[in-house]
């Protein structure tokens, strides 16, 4: 038993060390999207997988403490809103939808900012949704087909008191 616990502890320790770096890396990937491979989506997946690692190491309840259901749900909406909002800002600035060059800034800066805004939106949604997918898919069942059937069979359930 002790060995098993040790194992879990080491897993926890290692993932606690790793997770900040993974998250940092995800932001690096996001920020370097226009220089090298990477971008919002990849960054989002990496951020999401850091949380998945945390959940794998410490269990679902701890994971829920880190990112609650509400937090996840809201942020998966927020990402799309950020993306769409950048487009609407372009409309307000007088351009077509997602036409960054109409921002009242230097041409290069405007494009950079627009693309960053959009990628941040993608990252928020992707990381939130990936976490949600994992939480929902990997949750333990409280009732399976077999247990349901068994329950129905049990006479004690049908008896009236």
């Amino acid at each position: 038993m002790a060995r098993k616990e040790d194992h879990i502890i080491s897993l926890g320790v290692i993932s606690k060390i790793l997770i900040p770096f993974i998250q940092l890396y995800s932001y690096y990937v996001l920020a370097h999207g226009d220089l090298g491979p990477g971008g919002g989506f990849q960054g989002g997946v990496i951020l999401g997988s850091s949380i998945i690692l945390y959940v794998l190491a410490f269990g679902e309840e701890e994971g829920r403490k880190l990112v609650s259901q509400k937090f996840n749900d809201i942020f998966s909406s927020v990402g799309v809103l950020v993306y769409a909002g950048v487009g609407i800002l372009c409309l307000i600035a007088g351009g077509a939808y997602l036409e960054y060059s109409k921002f009242p800034l230097d041409h290069h800066l405007a494009h950079h900012l627009g693309m960053y805004g959009v990628e941040i939106g993608v990252q928020i949604t992707v990381s939130a949704v990936m976490t949600t997918l994992f939480f929902e898919t990997a949750r333990k069942d409280d009732e399976t087909f077999e247990s349901k059937k068994k329950k129905k069979m049990e006479p004690s359930n049908l008896k009236s008191s």
Binding site: I74, S77, V80, L81, A84, Y97
Partner: peptide
């Protein structure tokens, strides 16, 4: 297109 899309995103909130 955009208004239904945004509303779809806002509705869960």
């Amino acid at each position: 297109i955009l208004i239904p899309l945004i509303s779809a995103v806002v509705i869960p909130v």
